[in-house]
Amino acid sequence: MEQRGSGTGRRAQRPRSAADGGGALARDALIGAIAGTAATVAMTLAADALFRRLPARERYPLPPRELTERALAAAGAREVFDEPGLQAATLASHFGFGAASGALYGLLARPSSRGTGRLGGAPAALEGVGFAIGVWTASYFGWVPAFGLLRSASSHPARRNALMLSVHLVWGSSLGLVAQGLSRALKPIAGGELRDR
Rank of each mutant, 00 (worst) to 15 (best):
R4G: 00
G5M: 05
G5D: 15
T8V: 11
G9H: 09
R14Y: 00
R14Q: 12
P15E: 12
P15G: 04
P15T: 08
S17R: 15
A18F: 13
A19H: 08
G22I: 07
G22L: 15
G22E: 06
G22M: 09
G23H: 11
A24H: 14
A24L: 15
A24W: 13
L25D: 11
A26L: 15
A26Y: 10
D28T: 06
L30Q: 01
L30K: 01
G32D: 03
I34W: 03
I34P: 06
I34N: 03
A38C: 14
A38Y: 01
A39H: 05
L45V: 15
A47M: 12
L50T: 05
F51I: 02
R53C: 07
L54W: 10
L54K: 06
P55C: 03
P55L: 03
P64F: 04
P64E: 04
L67D: 01
T68F: 13
R70G: 00
R70A: 10
L72R: 09
L72W: 10
L72H: 09
V80Q: 14
D82H: 11
D82M: 08
E83Q: 13
A88T: 10
L91P: 00
F95D: 10
F97P: 00
G98H: 02
A100C: 04
A103S: 12
L104C: 11
Y105W: 04
G106C: 07
G106W: 00
L108I: 06
A109P: 11
R110V: 13
R114P: 00
G115V: 06
G115Y: 04
G115T: 04
G117E: 05
G117D: 05
G121Q: 07
G121E: 08
G121H: 05
G121P: 10
A125M: 04
A125F: 11
L126T: 08
L126P: 01
E127S: 10
G128S: 06
G130W: 09
F131C: 03
A132L: 07
A132I: 01
I133D: 00
W136Y: 14
W136Q: 08
T137R: 10
A138C: 13
S139D: 06
S139V: 02
Y140H: 13
W143P: 11
P145G: 01
P145Y: 00
A146E: 09
A146K: 11
A146S: 10
G148Y: 12
G148I: 13
L149N: 06
L150I: 12
L150Q: 14
R151E: 13
R151L: 09
S152D: 05
A153Y: 09
A153G: 05
R159N: 08
R160V: 15
A162L: 15
A162K: 05
A162I: 12
V167N: 04
V167P: 04
V167H: 03
H168F: 11
S174L: 06
L177W: 07
V178T: 11
Q180T: 03
Q180D: 07
S183L: 03
A185P: 12
L186Y: 09
L186V: 00
L186C: 10
I189E: 04
I189N: 03
G191T: 06
G192H: 09
E193I: 15
E193K: 13
R195E: 10
R195K: 12
D196I: 05
D196E: 14
R197N: 10
